[in-house]
Amino acid sequence: MSDTNMTRMTTRVNTTEISPPGVGGDGALGTASAFARQVMAIVAKDLRSELRTKQTWSAMALFALLVLVVFNFAFDLRVENTAAVAPGVLWVAFVFASILGLGRTVAAEHDQGPLDRLLLCPVNRTVVYFAKLIGNVLFIGVVEVVAVPIFAIIYNVPVALGGLVPVVVLGTIGVAAVGTLFAAMAANTRARELLLPVLIFPLLVPVVIAAVRATSALIVPVARDAPWVGLLAAFDVIFLSISAVAFEYVVED
């Protein structure tokens, strides 16, 4: 997110009500720090409630592992085709698990009502978006931390950790940026669990292609390959900015 974007978004926040006197309300720096503080407060609230139950995390991680195992049977992996198939399997597992988690988080918000209550607070919608986004990135990140070592073992792939970290982080941000917006969109409908994957997969195609390509370039380096990590970062910026602006319209009322 850019600085100018953030200041424009936060101008509508009623800073006097939510920030202690003397901290927010004057100048871009105060507004930015107020923005960060509000985002962090919501993230902390979500994390606390998830840490109590651990429902979402355990289901997502288990599902990701299951996808890894099932694809292992489905493709009958051998040494010569592992490099071609394994990155795709890894990202399909991540995206599937993400959708499971995304559906759950927003559904939980709607069933128990905190999203509505959250929107009653004098907090900008963009704050809510970024808080939900960070929460989702953390949720998916935990799953990835569990899944990557197991992936490396059962697919017998020499995972270069240093190189994989930026790819996974950027890919996760891309998935979560679109996913957070679409989870809120699907929550507006009667059949949100049904609709979320249908809506989200076509839009995630660029992110998935770039992430898979970047990952396979780590396993088997390709000469004259497109700059996939850079592209992934560019897609992230595009999807993040569109989603941050669009979120406001989705959760209106």
């Binding site: 679109v178 917006l181 969109m185 507006n188 409908t189 809506l199 076509p202 839009l203 195609v205 660029p206 292609i209 770039a210 390509r213 497109a226 996939w228 592209l231 897609f235 595009i238 569109i242 989603s243 669009a246 319209y249 989705v250 209106e252 009322d253």
Partner: peptide
């Protein structure tokens, strides 16, 4: 709310088309 949600999808989906084309071309 349905109209607003659909409008957002109409915008995001359209913006996604050139990005798709670009990524598939490079792929």
């Amino acid at each position: 709310s349905g109209a607003r949600t659909a409008a957002v999808l109409g915008i995001v989906g359209f913006v996604d088309v050139p990005i798709d084309y670009l990524s598939v071309t490079w792929w």
